[in-house]
Design a protein around this nucleic acid. Structure first.
Lengths: 275, 275
DNA sequence: TGGTGTTGTCTCTTGTAATGGACAAGTGTC
DNA sequence: GACACTTGTCCATTACAAGAGACAACACCA
């Protein structure tokens, strides 16, 4: 069980603002954005009255907005509960078709998974958390740790360390809420250690973590850089923790090669834009 | 090349309203919905000024809304052009994970494609057009006619005939705009013939079309019924036009079996809701 | 059956955002 | 360089929607 209020605030806080406490007379658009963020954090359909309560929004407003969004097809109502609608799915498909990073990243993940038989993922930073944008499961009978779209605390993952490259101590502190500094098994990730591992990942140009998300998993992650050489995404493998050094070296080199290719895509796009 | 204005109106018209001409003082939410629909119909990034012009919306309003939506992550701006943002992608993933029809339909499509090696699709009605919700390409070196999310005129497809089952003449006339009554090769689909084929598809419980979308393609479609026995989606195969009768019979029976299974999913959900 | 809490709709008021229009900063074109 | 046109920003105004609160319709329990 997760703490809905915490999730809501993280979702609402977008990138920096500490959630404006949903006070006074808000813009309808802001309310809508809050609703969508909350639904995403919630992850499943919710009753309108409950949604209103969780958001701290006036009931009449919430009912009105939900009605409008439902009529527009952005939300759908099933059994008295609302959730994302079909149109949002179609818009999402348009995004993944048109967005260069996602398109190239997905191709890379498919190649990596096909060639190695391992589970490969494309990940980014979203709302101060690690999010799997695309995943291709491996052939190995190995349970998948997480699903596409889910938000995972940054300290749990190798990718999280790469994605924070270049952030100073204050930024890391601001971006990683207290609740996210505990691993699933209850161990605490100390800020100093975490920052050290971020710096090391940045220096090495890759990151490997073992037994963080769970005791049997190892993550290998490589950074995808944008045209300004900032880490905008990662490619990663999720493999059993007892994978041999020879094998991980091999996987890592494939991973780094693909990540370089995807990064080049951004650079080319930049070149085209510049011309 | 397509006619953007026509597409825009179809997109904006939701399900019946003939686009309110974007007059007077519109609600911001309506404007946003119009923008999203237009972007979907347009299919690729567009300059804000151009978007404003195409929508017939005031420029200041458009710039304001685009700024808000971009800050919220619902849209993204690249090279002075805006398009759907990463958040919409994540919301879309949530939809496809939580929606029973899509989840079950996708599994069915994967099974059909894997077992037969043919291209299989899950399709629904959206904005008076046929839309591919999910597709799994076959192993055969056969070009794929269309991409996920694209909107295709109903008369071009077998699924289109099934999706209109139960609509009377007036409904069909209202739903299929004049421009959609021509096939890609320029041939016109007469309303009487089209309605007859809709009725036949409804009676048979499946539909097969040959050489409509192009001269080398055959489509086999089977209906997925919702809990009220209305056609809410279709499963279909896209195969070469010279596929043998034996083979199409075999494909059709697999298709019908899967479509029945997916339909049962809706019925079970209804049962759960009722209890 | 009455009591208590919840859900969803409706109305009215008032704060506020959508809009028209002015303006500055490009971008070609002759 | 002047001219025509476009792009993007910024106000002031006022039409309109966000919100408070009343109310009806249930649901649940004693």
């Amino acid at each position: 069980m997760q703490e809905p209020l915490v999730l809501q605030q993280q979702a609402g806080s977008a990138d920096r603002a500490p959630v404006p406490a949903a006070s006074s007379r808000e813009r309808s658009l802001d309310r809508v954005v809050q609703m969508l963020d909350f639904l995403h954090a919630h992850g499943s359909p919710i009753a309108v009255a409950e949604l209103s309560r969780q958001l701290g929004a006036p009931r009449s407003t919430t009912y009105n907005l939900v009605r409008s969004l439902t009529e527009a097809g952005l939300l759908e109502e099933t059994d008295g509960r609302v959730f994302f609608g079909k149109k949002l799915y179609l818009y999402g498909m348009d995004y993944s078709r048109e967005n260069a990073l996602v398109r190239r990243g997905r191709e890379a993940v498919d190649r990596l998974s096909r060639e190695t038989g391992e589970t490969a993922e494309l990940c980014t930073l979203q709302n101060g958390r690690y999010t799997i944008i695309y995943m291709c499961p491996g052939t190995r009978p190995f349970r998948i740790s997480s699903a596409v779209g889910l938000q995972i605390p940054l300290p749990w993952t190798a990718s999280g360390r790469l994605l924070l490259a270049g952030s100073d101590r204050a930024a890391v502190e601001a971006l990683v809420p207290e609740a996210d500094r505990f691993l699933p098994d209850g161990r605490r990730v100390e800020l100093d250690d975490f920052i050290a591992s971020i710096e090391e990942a940045d220096r090495l140009g890759y990151c490997i973590t073992s037994g963080l998300v769970d005791a049997v998993t190892m993550c290998l992650a490589a950074p995808v850089y944008d045209e300004k050489s900032r880490v905008e995404a990662t490619l990663c493998f999720v493999v059993p923790i007892d994978t041999s050094k020879t094998r991980t070296d091999e996987l890592l080199s494939r991973l780094l090669a693909e990540a370089r290719q995807v990064s080049l895509g951004s650079r080319e796009a930049q070149g085209r834009r510049g011309s």
